[in-house]
């Protein structure tokens, strides 16, 4: 019996501001999880800190609400210790691209099979609307005392430059579309980013529902093919995707920008070195026998013979 979207709804009262785009994201997650029929006990949502950081409490799968900026490394440990888990990261733009941006880049380099859902609301929601790293220079959402004098980072471009092998953008108020992106990202074997445009109704009076309604269009409607069909195509595709990612003013493309199924995931790279890795990953190994270590004196001498000198 397949699980319904509502089976993933937790009983916790959701305290996001009424109308917040985060509701659209969590709604898309319920639907995507249901369509993929993810077993809750084998699914983990890892989040950072911020309004977005509360996401795991609203979903009935394992939830790990971590530290500001650190969701990716927590998720890295969870996924690598038990690769059979489906691990999804929800983080704010401040969280993932400000304080935690080093981890974001590192994830691209590793291509771990994680899905990153970036709640891109151009502000620091939970600390009262300061500029986030995705807010463009010169803009002044209402909480800012002065216009922003720092330039914005483009999440899609950065993900491409970092090595993410699935890079997409969604819009929180187009839930069906976003749901499809989430499904694809989860099914993709490697690091996946979904940059989700998420109106913050309380602090961002610029990037409103109206604003996005006028600008957003779907890449797939233009015949865009994000997929690296053959590895030789990688360079060309990544350049095209990067150029596309620069389009961000009058028209904002959403959809999958880039997908490379060829670059091995980190899990596959580990398996190259430790062939038993996927069958017996760290979390599933037995390390004791009736309270005793599995390495007894004899095994110890054999394993560490390099350090042992037989005396004269």
């Amino acid at each position: 019996m397949a699980r319904k979207p509502s089976d993933y709804q937790s009983d916790i009262w959701n305290d996001w501001c009424p109308g917040c785009g985060d509701f659209g994201i969590v709604a898309a997650m319920y639907r995507a999880f249901s369509e993929l029929d993810l077993p809750p006990e084998k699914t983990v949502i890892v989040s950072g800190i911020g309004c977005s950081g509360k996401t795991p409490h609203f979903v009935k799968v394992n939830g790990v609400h971590t530290l500001h900026g650190r969701a990716i490394p927590f998720a890295t440990g969870i996924k690598l210790a038990n690769p059979e888990l489906t691990v999804i990261v929800n983080g704010g733009d401040g969280d993932l691209l400000g304080i935690g941006v080093g981890h974001f880049v590192a994830l691209g380099r590793r291509n771990i099979d994680l899905t990153i859902i970036l709640h891109n609301n151009t502000v620091y929601g939970l600390t009262k609307g300061q500029a986030s790293p995705t807010l463009r220079r010169g803009l002044r959402p209402k909480a800012l005392p002065k216009p922003n004098i720092q330039d914005a980072v483009n999440p899609v471009s950065l993900a491409l430059a970092s090595g993410f092998t699935f890079v997409a953008r969604g819009y929180s108020m187009m839930t069906e579309h976003l749901k499809e992106l989430i499904k694809e990202a989860i099914q993709h074997k490697g690091a996946a980013l979904i940059d989700v445009l998420q109106p913050c109704v309380t602090y961002d009076n610029i990037h409103t529902v109206e604003y996005y309604k006028k600008r957003v269009y779907k890449l797939e409607d233009t015949g865009w093919n994000p997929k690296v069909e053959k590895i030789e195509e990688k360079e060309e595709k990544i350049v095209k995707a990067w150029m596309k990612s620069q389009e961000y003013d009058d028209k904002i493309p959403i959809g999958v920008f880039y997908q490379d199924p060829h670059t091995p995931s980190f899990e596959e790279r580990i398996k190259e070195r430790i062939p038993s890795y996927l069958e017996t990953p760290p979390a599933r190994q037995k390390i004791e026998r009736e309270g005793k270590t599995i390495i007894d004196s004899e095994a110890f001498r054999k394993i560490f013979s390099y350090y042992i000198v037989e005396t004269e």
């Binding site: 927590f74 440990g77 969870i78 080093g102 979390a283």
Partner: peptide, 18 residues
């Protein structure tokens, strides 16, 4: 990539039982 990731990934792994 840094010690923050070192400890937080270790904690993540610990939550899964490793």
């Amino acid at each position: 990539e840094d010690e923050i990731a070192a400890i937080t990934s270790a904690i993540g792994a610990a939550l899964t039982g490793a």
